[in-house]
Amino acid sequence: MNEVISTTGLTKVYGRVLAVNDLSLSVKKGEIFGFLGPNGAGKTTTIRMLLGMVSPTSGRCFVLGKRISAGSTALWNDVGYIVETPHSYPELTVRENLEIVCSLRGIENKSRVEWIMGKLKLNRYACIKARHLSTGNAQRLGIAKALIHRPKVLILDEPANGLDPEGIIEVRELLRGLAKDFGVTILVSSHRLDEISRMATNIAIIHQGRLIKELDAKRLEQELKKSLVIGGKDKAAMASVITKAGYKVKMSREVATDIPLDLRIDDKDALENPEAIVTLLVNAGHPPNLVRIEKEDLEAYFIRTIKEAGGNYYE
């Protein structure tokens, strides 16, 4: 069975609010599926439906070939999850919280607690009550609870929330390793494309409950807009030369002073042969002092995608 997580026409309506709208997803074995969207896009509602915590208004979801419902208990042996900010029992220590998860998941191997604390660097905090943990360590404890039973499927809602940069890298490497070495299938939600793009093999972008883009990492690379950025002394004259040669050129200006900053060309021909533009300018007596190819930043791509789908990132 290749398809590990799938949804078909998944829809959830709360009163008049359409939280998830006809969402169909497919996540295959060993994939790290980045589930992206701004806050309130419907990511958490989708995850709750995948975990049987919320019933869909219509549509279905499957994990490991089994249709999800609140009663599908055996299935959760193979699924680890985080929904929103993880919380633990405040009066219990880190070790005790993990021991409780172990017992509820029927894990008899007691060394598993030490193993997962080692993986998540929680050993130092083993005897600290959960209420005294920092946000980052509380997040680590949440991830530890999701991984302690070595699940085949991980469904993680914003797992990097509250982690410091070092922690983000550690968790990213841990998840990559699980997918690569153990074939664990991971669905990970985030509102940050840069974070997701560093580990995801596939990406889906959701906005206002609707899937607006689904692509793999290779395709994402191709979809990022590229521009040839050119600088020089007389930018107006350089723009004129380039335009006369048949290229479309845009001049970026400083917002406050309207002073020209650089010239940008998006033509495929110019991007493939930047030396032709340089020759053109040199021959016209306007040698450039800056030539570089600039790739669209991931956040800009994310916002552009949402806008192209008729949405507003800030809505």
């Binding site: 975990l51 915590m53 208990t73 055996a74 699924v79 929103e84 919380h87 029992y89 998941r105």
Partner: peptide
């Protein structure tokens, strides 16, 4: 109140 309910909802033990 402690928001730990979600840890009890998708377990191999029935609700």
């Amino acid at each position: 109140s402690d928001r730990t309910i979600k840890d009890l909802l998708a377990l191999p033990i029935s609700r």
